[in-house]
Design a binder for these strands. Structure first.
Lengths: 246, 246
DNA sequence: CCATAGTCCTTGCAGTGTATAGTGTTTTTA
DNA sequence: TAAAAACACTATACACTGCAAGGACTATGG
């Protein structure tokens, strides 16, 4: 039997699924709403894209509508809910055809598509992700991935770990790609400086960390390193899943 | 030639490596310091462990020493630096013997050890990680992993993707494990409630997302699910790395 | 028709990081 | 040895945050 249906939670879920069969909270009595939830989310996302997630505040969003911060609350409930709604809203899944050539190709297509979304909205990497939660758009991604694994007869026991690895890897590589992107326009000076300072202060760094030192320097072709890393990782995973057998 | 050695960056690096050959800033003229950087970091970590990273503030730390917030700054520079120092300080690598039985076992030992560290300090998952940065303790982990890959003759081209996947997977699984842990003491009520609300509001959820629905429910044996997921993932990866051949 | 539930808006509070200025202490330099 | 510079500490202040509380207004349901 259902626990007393905590109104806030229900309202949040309604808002999350507002384009998939639910309507936002309920019979609206008061004055007509002057704002629109989708529009609020769009401007929140725009701010996050341009100035980072930290620049998203109830005030900064409301300011774009020449209103004060509290107008936002009737539309989203709390700041945390607002961020969750932005997260799902920004995660709309594009459409593509699953490659039928190999599992590796199909996984690659999925991963690349998700990578692209994360690149468009780098702040998504700062948001938590858990398999069980979230809204319809994030749900779409998971379902699609599971369908691919099913199509290629990946044994059920291997699916949860595969899902975890894929999501984790996409998020990680997208995160570093976004960090590189930011350096591009901000200077990369500090990054380099820190590395130099470390080398200067720890003269035997190369002896202490020979393996790390032996890695190809990140600076070389750094721009597409994350994407290449992702491709390599997906390839590895596909190999493992294929050889796991049915 | 070195750019003018930005004093703040250099000081931060010195602090990071203070136990590995550098000394904290240096010619100190003024009055003796009454606090100790390691002690500051310990209390910051204690607060983060107990109340979450959000509860860590210059004021909350200083209060434990009956001082006001600004005392912290001579020791750490900025809040961001403080967090970075806490991050490295909390990442001390334990010692263990590399299994010689198989690559899979060796990787598993590494991953489990790191997982354990993240479980002890769940807030570490909220901190960014990038291969090129950080302090000595985090460096140790990377070096150790690379040594394992080298020992087992994993081809150099496969190493960066493997590193990325391993770190990403450990962080992701540790993050969900920590989330479960939190639910334990906080109720898990909200989580369940949200799931129920979604099912109630989207009656055809199971038709729309058959694959997701088909997954074993997370609630069953949820406590060790993340650890098991990590083990499975590492196993998959080891299979791929082995069959990649030299 | 009126109570109610909703939006909109202002005010205010507790909390954040940190700039600044002042005071006292220690070490370095002249 | 005296002066000066660099530091630790303290208190105050500023700009910023999320949001509770409450007032004014408005559309709706009983």
């Amino acid at each position: 039997m259902a626990v007393e249906p905590n109104r806030d939670v229900e309202a949040h879920v309604r808002r999350l699924w507002r384009h998939r069969g639910t309507t936002v909270p309920t019979p609206r009595r008061g004055p007509r709403q002057q704002l629109d939830l989708d529009e609020i989310l769009r401007t929140g996302i725009a701010i996050a894209d341009a100035e980072g997630l930290a620049a998203v505040s109830t005030r900064s969003i409301a300011a774009r509508f020449d209103k004060s911060s509290m107008v936002i609350y009737p539309y989203v409930g709390t700041k945390e809910n607002l961020l969750a709604l932005m997260q799902d809203h920004a995660s709309a899944m594009p459409s593509w055809d699953d490659p039928v050539t190999s599992l590796a190709d199909a996984l690659h297509a999925w991963a690349e598509a998700l990578f692209e979304v994360y690149l468009s909205h780098p702040w998504l990497t700062e948001r938590p992700w858990s398999q069980a939660s979230q809204g319809p758009n994030e749900q779409d991604w998971l379902e699609r991935l599971l369908r691919v694994l099913d199509t290629w007869a990946v044994p059920p026991s291997a699916r949860p770990p595969a899902v975890t690895m894929l999501y984790a890897t996409v998020r990680a590589t997208a995160g570093t790609a976004a960090a590189y992107e930011r350096m591009n326009q901000q200077g990369m000076a500090e990054w380099r400086e820190r590395a130099e300072a470390t080398m200067a202060l720890i003269p035997d760094f190369r002896q202490r960390y020979p393996m790390t030192t032996g890695l190809e320097p990140v600076t070389a072709r750094w721009k597409d390193a994350p994407r290449a890393g992702l491709a390599g990782a997906v390839h590895l995973l596909a190999v493992a899943l294929s050889s796991a057998g049915p």
